[in-house]
């Protein structure tokens, strides 16, 4: 009975500190809801220090967007880049409103974008994941045996910043920043036992995807 009580108290304590929370900031008042014939494309930005390639950006955001509105049409990054070659490769992608506008002034590019029906281009401009270790575990041993004692804690945070570019006007119509923080817990009683790994990256992707889904569906 006493052991059960101890386990319950420990579990409650660990549950209190082991959690993942997300925060979002957005400025997307210019973004209009997508019409049924309009599409959105999700791409990464090769020029920024990001851990997200094109495929990873798509995997990260598409599910969250479609969870909110399964009818939204999303174009895969490779298809978009190939259709607009030579203009959206790593070294030829626009980054500023001036560069977007100059590109959209090219009639061939403008015509292709209209033919594809792409209204918005969402690009992930920053992705960062950091970990800070706290707490401590001490291990020792001798001929008679050994073991560890202590509590290992680590704070993990992930931040993703996305920009929403209007490919009809060349303006950046919105930007969304999402951050997730979580604390991992590993108590050590003889052996270190990892109890909770904070999945901040997955939480940030889901949150950002859902926010974008809401924005593109006019649900903000």
């Amino acid at each position: 009975m006493r052991l059960f009580l101890q386990i319950t108290v420990f579990s409650l304590f660990f549950n209190l500190i082991a959690c993942t929370s997300t925060h979002t900031q957005q400025e997307a008042s210019q973004v209009q809801p997508l019409k049924s014939i309009e599409k959105v494309v999700l791409i990464g930005d090769f020029n920024v220090k990001s851990e997200f390639s094109d495929e990873k950006v798509f995997d990260c955001l598409a599910d969250g967007i479609l969870d909110i509105n399964p009818k939204l049409a999303i174009i895969k990054p490779e298809e978009f880049r190939n259709q607009l070659f030579p203009y959206f490769t790593g070294s030829t992608s626009p980054h500023t409103p001036e560069e977007y506008k100059a590109l959209l002034n090219n009639p061939l590019v403008n015509r292709r974008i209209k033919a594809m029906g792409v209204r918005y281009l969402i690009t992930l401009i920053e992705s960062k994941t950091g970990t800070d270790y706290n707490g401590g575990i001490v291990c020792g041993g001798s001929y008679g045996g050994g073991g560890c004692i202590g509590l290992g804690l680590w704070d993990r945070n992930t931040r993703l910043d996305a920009q929403i570019w209007n490919l009809q006007s060349g303006n950046m119509d919105g930007n969304v920043q999402t951050q997730a923080e979580g604390t991992g817990v590993m108590p050590a009683l003889l052996l270190p036992i990892p109890l909770y790994f904070p999945a901040t990256e997955a939480a940030t992707c889901q949150e950002l995807g859902e926010k974008l889904g809401n924005i593109l569906s006019g649900k903000t």
Partner: peptide, 29 residues
């Protein structure tokens, strides 16, 4: 011109793939 490609994950025949993508990027430029 210079083309560059990087990846954060392993892919079958990665060196060949990255070189092809870097060449494609250089030609776009």
């Amino acid at each position: 011109v210079s083309g560059k490609e990087k990846r954060q994950f392993f892919k079958f025949n990665l060196g060949k793939y990255l070189t092809e993508q870097a060449m494609k990027d250089a030609m776009a430029q």
